[in-house]
Amino acid sequence: MLKIGDVLLVSIQVELEDQVVLELQDDLAARIVDSGASGVVIDITAVEIVDSFVGRMLATTAAISRMLDAQTVVVGMRPAVAITLVELGLSLGGVRTALTLEKGLEILARRDDSRPAQL
């Protein structure tokens, strides 16, 4: 887990066991609070399949981050993964996605500008 400015970057590189997926979700929530990050990017460029378990984790993570005042963007989804997810019945409605890391960071930067100024 990397912190770039206000953003936590999580890059999923290996095929994850369910238990590791859950641990990642917990670690991320803790890191958001510790670091005061305002955004989270989850890079799934290397991920070959997203099944209902991982899909649910992405949705849950986005919801948890939102509650902790951070926005999540999932980047790098492969076309075959997107096709499969929709056919599986998981459209990940509550999850913001971007095609590339750069675009994901852009979305988060825009959001940050629109945060109300501190009094």
Binding site: I49, I83, T84
Partner: peptide, 17 residues
């Protein structure tokens, strides 16, 4: 095809779980 591979592996993952 890559899409069919992905679909099959995803289905297998669901059933194995």
């Amino acid at each position: 095809s890559l899409v069919d591979q992905t679909k099959l592996v995803t289905a297998a993952s669901e059933l194995a779980r």
